[in-house]
Structure formats: C-alpha cells, structure tokens
C-alpha cells in the first residue's frame, strides 16, 4: 500500500500524518479526527503497520513500537493529544475536565481522576441530548474563551455497567476485547454543531455514590483555589493562572457535587443551567 497522507485537525492545530502499511489505519484516523484537505508539505508524524509490528515516529524519531494494531492506535491518539497540549501550553491554560453544552450554556466538569467526569459527560449526551464537546482536557484561552482539545473520548469497559447506552454507539468494540479503551470520535456525541457555548457553570465532582447528591455553590475564592488543582500548567505561570481562574469563576457559577447516582447527577447538572440550583 502506498503511503497515505492525512491532515488531522486537533484544537485548531494541524498534524499531517503519513500512514503506511494498512489502509484501515488511515480510515481510522479519518473517522476519529476532523480532517483538513491541504495535502502539501512534510508529514512529520509517521505511522506504519506490518503484521505484528507497528511503529510511530515523529520527525524521524522513534516514539513507540506496538505489538498490535489496537496498541498502535492508542499510541497515535496519545501522541497527537500530547503534541496538541505541548503546543497550547505556552499560550493558554489547560484544565482537566469535560466540556458539555446545551444551546449556548456550557458546563465544565472538573474533578480528580476516577470521579466520573467522562461518565457524566457521556450520560448527558446520550440521555439528555446535550452536546459533548470535549473530554479530558479543555483549553482556557486568553479572554476566558473555553474550547475543547477535540481528542476522542476514551471509554473504558466499566462505563457500560453504569451507562449501557454506550453499547449503541456507532463504533467497533474490538478495543475492549483487546483490553484497550474505546476511542470514540467526538462527533458521535454531537447532534448538531450548535453555537459556541459560554461557560455558564463549572462543576467540581467529588466521588459518586448511592446517597442523594450534595451540591454546594462555591464562593469565588474557594472556586479559584479548587480549580487551580486541575490546571495542568498552573506552575508555568501561576499569577496569570489565578487571574484567569478568577475571571472564569466570576462569569460562571461554580458548584461542588458529591455523591449521587448517575441519574441524580445528570438531574443536578440540568439545574445548574436552569438557574434552579442554589
């Protein structure tokens, strides 16, 4: 198979990729990411697959070797996200969180690993028809605009017990059988392009549980202090990060949500944009 060039667009950045050895790899890239048509210039990212051996290179440098096709796809996704983060890092703040919206009302879901950001974001999309715009990392640009990193949503098999609807997503479930997360393109969750949302609420998630969810609205100072923990590049420019977080916390209501089943948590998120939350 001759090399295929694909231009992946990730968070306003273009990553030309040269794919060799397996046309299904190029198809996967096209299905997983937004693509730009421009076909000129060098393609620094090189992905090749020969049965039993996958190689990912960047500017000729070996990044990863993979023993299976699934493993290679995971490495490609990981590498592209890492490159996008590296390039955004000097000019924006990167917050661990998911970004969902209904109409122009955006809700940012932040929280420590394992507290259900992805599950809640996907549930809002599949059960409540919200748009899932980004999972894992959001970019807080100068001026306070929020935009997602656009990487695919990584779903681990455990999500299916809390949210069986994921089994109806239009993706192959091979990765789960091979022990890898599913990489679901964001467009699988976007019912329409819709207007660019503004941050209306920020929800800091605590652990879920069978109890009634406990919702507490945070003052601006506490909101800034808590959100600082989720800024990936806070240490790079802490004064600017504090200022940006204060600006964000002034424009959006910040809540702490702890406990509650998935259904209760979804209902709570609805109240954050309806103005019924106290």
């Amino acid at each position: 198979m001759p090399p295929i060039r694909v231009n992946v667009v990730l968070a306003e950045l273009t990553f030309p990729i040269r794919v060799e050895g397996d046309s299904s790899l190029a198809a996967w890239v096209r299905e997983t990411y937004p693509i730009s048509r421009d076909g000129r210039g060098a393609a620094p990212v090189h992905v090749s697959w020969n049965p039993g051996r996958g190689i990912l290179r960047h500017d000729g440098r070996l990044i990863k070797r993979a023993r299976s096709r699934e493993e290679l796809l995971q490495f490609v996704e990981w590498h592209l996200a890492g490159e996008a983060i590296r390039r955004w890092r000097p000019r924006a703040f990167l917050l661990h969180g998911a970004w969902i919206a209904r109409g122009r009302d955006g809700v940012l879901l932040a929280g420590a690993h394992g507290f259900g950001k992805t599950t809640l974001a996907v549930a809002m999309a599949l059960r409540h028809r919200w748009r899932l715009l980004g999972d894992d990392v959001v970019i807080v640009k100068p001026g306070g605009t929020v935009r997602p990193l656009d990487r695919p949503v990584r779903l681990k098999p455990g999500i299916a017990s809390a949210l069986p609807e994921v089994r109806r997503l239009p993706v192959g479930f091979g990765p789960w059988k091979a022990g890898w997360p599913l990489l679901v393109p964001l467009r699988a969750f976007r019912r329409s392009s819709g207007p660019a949302p503004r941050p209306r609420a920020i929800v800091i998630l605590g652990p879920s549980g069978p109890s009634e969810p406990i919702v507490r609205r945070l003052g601006e100072g506490e909101a800034v202090a808590r959100l600082a923990r989720f800024v990936m590049n806070f240490r790079d420019r802490p004064a600017e990060a504090l200022e940006r977080l204060a600006s964000l916390a002034r424009r959006a209501s910040v809540f702490h949500l702890e406990g509650g089943s998935l259904a209760r948590r979804c209902a709570a998120v609805e109240t954050f944009v309806s103005g019924r939350a106290s």
Binding site: G219, E220, G221, A225, L242, A246, R250
Partner: peptide, 24 residues
C-alpha cells in the same frame, strides 16, 4: 507569594509549598 483578588476576598498562592489559601 502571589495574591489574586476575588469578589468575596482573595486567594494566596505559596509557590514554595504549592499551597493555595482562600481569604475571606
């Protein structure tokens, strides 16, 4: 120390201990 004013007080960041203090 870095200080950020907020509407309900202030936030102090201590880069040494990487701690954030909320001030009323």
């Amino acid at each position: 120390l870095l200080y950020q004013e907020v509407t309900d007080g202030g936030v102090l960041f201590d880069p040494d201990g990487e701690k954030v203090y909320v001030l009323n």
